[in-house]
Write a protein that binds this DNA or RNA. Structure first.
Lengths: 204, 204
DNA sequence: GCAAAACCATACGCTACCGTATGGAGGTGG
DNA sequence: CCACCTCCATACGGTAGCGTATGGTTTTGC
């Protein structure tokens, strides 16, 4: 069970590669050029090797893409958990989560790519799992805030839709979004206020 | 100034084609397979002709794509205007607009495709115009509802983000959205309520 | 009814990528 | 020290699309 994936020789150039080297390069390409950029031959060039290596570690391009997305899924999930774990108050957690899209723009590039190719057969299942997990979690937060089951679920959907929509706006037309840091904060404040006011428990 | 684009012979099969025939076929392909499906050779096959025709009317694939997107832009804008024109009350207009994404799923396929390839160099400018126009319009609706400039703009952004997010959810993971017609209505009701409550005039 | 213009078919070459086949190099254990 | 297993390079063939070239076929205008 070594599971190293990336062989030793740290730092050296012409070392031999492992599975993890390929998914790492693929993640970088994913962030820069989207799903289409996860292509064997360009990646090989990028890694200073050839397709021979890739097809040794993975049977096909889709297999590499699959492995890459699964790696992203776990790393991303962990990242969110640790990010949110520092807060205990549900309202603050909500704020951290919703704020993350406005703050870190560059770090979400992989997510943007995944969303862009949502209907790709290899991407879809991953995205499905991530989405369901997130919405459920948001619903639990709203439940903690006192909303009934149905109401919490609906608010969670609305919140998540807002999150996705902002990601889309940030990617495609950032001009329409508030530019100044202060305006962004104000905007975030208002969004959360709007999402968490009115309609108390047993409304759904 | 004939500007027919699609030559006569209505209904016949082996007629000669005009510019408009190509953008029409491209729109269909766009809805079904996204931007990548707007490709000369497949379209030619679909039209029962050859590339020769395409490269007569358009100098390149990107030119065809460009023309197609511009056609979509104007037709889509007109469609929305007529759709909303039947309502006079700003709150009802808001409802019609936001409801459209939940109701008509199939008809928005082109928009979905455009959103998916938002950063494509040919797509981006079109999307930019459409987005800015829509957000401005939404902001004017919120202003009519009594919100101040800044507040109206922020609410418009939130509303539009919710719209975009729902489009994304509908495309990628429809399972998380309410399935039953009645639940959808309820959900739409709540969304609008949440978006239009609190924070009166001169708040921004 | 015939020249000119508009339109289309076919053949070609080019790029980018996929996947296979095969002959190695390079470490590693007995 | 050599057989073996791991890993890689190269060469090949295939697909899908772009764009060009060139000659042919319709229309249209006069």
């Amino acid at each position: 069970m070594s599971e190293r994936g990336v062989s030793a020789h740290d730092g050296d150039s012409r070392r031999r590669l492992g599975k993890a080297d390929w998914t790492a390069a693929a993640l970088a390409a994913l962030a820069e050029g989207g799903v289409a950029a996860v292509a064997i031959e360009p990646l090989a060039a990028r890694l200073g090797t050839t397709k021979g290596s890739a097809y040794w570690h993975y049977p096909s391009r889709d297999a590499l893409l699959h492995a890459t997305l699964e790696r992203w899924e776990v790393e991303h999930t962990e990242a969110i958990i640790t990010m949110v774990g520092s807060e205990s108050d549900p309202a603050r957690r909500l704020r951290v989560l919703l704020g993350s899209v406005l703050e870190h723009a560059a770090e979400n590039q992989v997510e943007i790519a995944v969303l862009a190719d949502a209907d790709h057969p290899v991407v879809a299942p991953v995205l499905q799992r991530v989405t369901e997990r997130r919405v459920s979690y948001l619903a639990s937060l709203f439940a903690e805030l006192g909303y009934g089951r149905g109401e919490a679920r609906r608010r969670a959907l609305l919140a998540y839709a807002a999150y996705l929509g902002h990601a889309q706006l940030l990617r495609a037309t950032p001009e329409v979004l508030p530019a100044a840091r202060s305006t962004q904060r104000r905007y975030l404040d208002q969004t959360i206020r709007v999402l968490t006011q009115g309609g108390g428990p047993s409304t759904g």
